[in-house]
Simulated assay, not measured.
Amino acid sequence: MQPRRIARELALLSLSQLPSKPKKLEEQTPQTVMLTAIRALTGEVQDALEMASADLKRGNDLLRDSEFRAVDLKSSQAMVGDAIARTQTAINRLGSAVELPELMQLGDQQEVRDYTIQIVSTCNQYRQEVDELLEASLQDWQLTRLAKVDQNILRIAVVEMVYLALPDRVAINEAVELAKRYSAEEGHRFINGVLRRVTKQLPAAPQQS
């Protein structure tokens, strides 16, 4: 896997976990960047499993107390379905956490670290401008209402297009791949649509000096 693709994934996972102050951010080593991403992933795994367990318990309680009334049976089935989906998400996240150290070894660790830090620092520096551009492209939707992972996939793509000189098509394709890996089932289509609308506004977007 290309170092920048690994870096992009690490940036997505650790964007809200790494230090926001530039000096502290620059002190991060390849190992600390990777560990931060793994901790973020394992935290998501734990949260997903806890929610799945709660869904299963509620579904079981509803079945036990319902005497199999149709409405309660449907509600219980829905809860079990949610629990299965959350468990699958947890399994996928756990698989990603296991893969990260191997991926890091396959790439140039310093290059991976440097591009991860560049993405994160640029996201922090231009957060307001990036979010305004995204808000204008969401069409009657609010950025803060999106899942956190989708917000950050969009931010990273915009940062790469506007500030890091990545071609629009490449940035969108990379964002779609991240969404397929970390977003909800149809998330990649939503991400693709938003970013294509973003590209129509890029001439008016702020440029790095």
Rank of each mutant, 00 (worst) to 15 (best):
L134T: 01
E129I: 09
M161G: 03
L154W: 00
I153D: 04
A147G: 07
V159C: 05
V159N: 00
A147L: 11
Q139T: 11
V159P: 00
D150E: 15
Y163E: 04
D131W: 07
I153K: 04
M161C: 08
L166Y: 06
W141H: 10
T144P: 00
R169F: 10
T144S: 02
D168F: 13
D131T: 11
L134W: 05
D150A: 06
D150R: 14
A165G: 04
M161Q: 08
D131K: 04
A136N: 03
V130R: 02
I153M: 08
E135Y: 04
D150T: 15
L138F: 03
Q151L: 12
R169Y: 12
D150L: 09
D131E: 15
D140A: 13
A165R: 12
A165P: 01
V170C: 01
V158R: 05
Y163I: 12
L138D: 00
A165N: 13
S137H: 09
L164I: 11
Q142R: 15
Q151A: 09
V149K: 05
K148W: 12
L134G: 06
T144N: 04
L133C: 11
K148T: 15
S137I: 07
R145N: 11
A157I: 06
W141L: 11
A165T: 13
R145W: 14
V162A: 09
R145D: 10
Q139P: 00
L154D: 06
Q151W: 12
Q142A: 14
D168A: 15
M161P: 01
K148P: 01
K148H: 12
V170R: 07
E135W: 03
L164Y: 08
